[in-house]
Computed example of a mutant assay.
Amino acid sequence: MKRLIVAAGGGGDAVAAAMLHAALYATDDEPALVLTYSWDRLIIDPVPGPRAPSDFTGLRQLAPHVRAVPGAATLKPPYGATLPRLAAELPHTFALIDPYAGAEGIARQLDELTIHFTPQTIDLLDVGGDILAHGDEPTLRSPLADALTLAACARARAAARIRLLVAGPGLDGELPADVLRPRLGPLISTFTPEHTQAITSVLTWHPSEATALLAATALGARGLCEVRDAGLPVPLTAEGPAIHQVDLAAAFSGNRLARAIADTTTLDGAEERCRAVCGSSEIDYERTKARRLSRQQPGRAVPHDLLARIKAFEQAALTRRATHTTVRRLAEALGLTGAALQHLAQLNAPRASHLPATVWKLQRR
């Protein structure tokens, strides 16, 4: 395969990899190989943390320590994941990052893929830019996944060939664009509406917020969007569709967490160092949230008064100066189950106009 794209932080970056391939490698006559985590939010996967190869059935071996996730792969109960459906709908090959062997294990996976497939290019892609965190930023919420892939790429034999790309600075709701701007390298491309066509069908159901906003800004959306369960405000600006290249070695040198976990051989070990550097890890947050959700009474996936509740949410969000939200934010704010995500996207599709169905434009009633 000509192109190897490493999705730095999870499912959303894997979706964005398809956009990147369309933007940079449109003349290729073959799809890309995308190395990615299977790490979904609790609204999709009720079990905290990333999925390991042993959590799946039907994986396909690509290299001694690398498995591909085909569209026919399934998850063992009680796990959930978006990756098999993503593989079924997109032409690219999706290989599973296994973080349970730490940064050293991911570096080994990269080495095996580069030796076996000898790709012409290797891109490490992060949507939002939290891969450029130093580790002490107060807005940083999910540093571990990106730091693991950054450390692995820095340790890989092909490190000198790996190009770090940051798309949509600030769109993940972690580091603001103003903080990221001095850390970015040159602008190498800008996503256009044409590039979003590669993932149009995926954005009718996939819960990734950052990648949905990346596509939305490429399609011209501007304003302020509330994301995540906390309702973080994310500006939608002309910078949204930008793709910047960043020096990999410099990013690794500036990321305290990536340096601290570079020699880890287990996910537990990486988590322990993440707590030491950042105060906690995103898996700790997921564990706490999962316990809270388990104590809640199960409700209806789609309540009878859904439209009235949506209207109330919209009016409250407008008073907070928001212009958009995401179906994931809306579902969590209304206390809905994961099954409601698709229903909300279907409700939104006729009113979304040219935007992804998972991006909800607020309307005054």
Rank of each mutant, 00 (worst) to 15 (best):
Q109A: 09
R287N: 02
L219P: 04
R41V: 10
L355K: 00
A212M: 07
V234I: 14
L318H: 08
A290N: 02
L83G: 02
D130G: 05
R141D: 03
T266D: 05
A290V: 03
A14R: 03
V327G: 07
L248W: 05
C274F: 04
I243W: 12
A73W: 11
D98P: 10
D123M: 11
P176T: 02
A18C: 15
G71A: 13
A331M: 13
N255M: 15
L214C: 11
L20S: 05
A290Y: 04
S54W: 09
S189I: 14
L334I: 10
L175H: 12
Q297V: 13
L35W: 12
C225I: 05
R365N: 08
D55R: 04
I283W: 11
T93A: 15
A230R: 07
G71N: 04
A230E: 08
R228W: 02
W205Q: 02
A333H: 10
S280E: 10
L96F: 15
T118C: 04
R161S: 13
L110T: 02
D123A: 14
Q296K: 06
S54N: 05
F252C: 07
F313E: 14
P143H: 11
L203Q: 15
V277L: 03
T121G: 01
A145D: 12
V202M: 14
S201E: 15
L306I: 04
Q245P: 03
R163K: 00
A340G: 13
E104H: 08
L336I: 00
T93S: 15
H324R: 06
C225S: 11
P233F: 10
I131F: 12
S208Y: 14
A238Q: 04
A238P: 02
H206K: 11
D45H: 02
A152P: 00
I44M: 00
F191S: 11
P176M: 07
G173E: 14
G299N: 07
I131G: 14
Y25C: 12
W360E: 07
A262E: 06
T265C: 08
C153V: 03
L59P: 04
R108P: 07
D28V: 01
P298M: 04
G279H: 08
R365W: 12
R295G: 13
A32S: 14
A95T: 13
R275Q: 00
L362Q: 04
L219M: 06
Q342T: 09
G223C: 12
R157W: 12
A160T: 07
G102I: 01
L164M: 02
A250K: 14
T265Q: 04
C225R: 01
K76Y: 12
C153P: 00
A198H: 11
L362V: 07
T190H: 02
A349C: 00
R108E: 13
D178T: 09
W360Q: 05
D284W: 09
T337R: 10
G58C: 01
T326C: 05
A210E: 13
A290H: 03
L175E: 14
T57E: 15
R256P: 04
A17S: 14
R320E: 11
Q296D: 06
L257Q: 10
D55Y: 06
A349D: 01
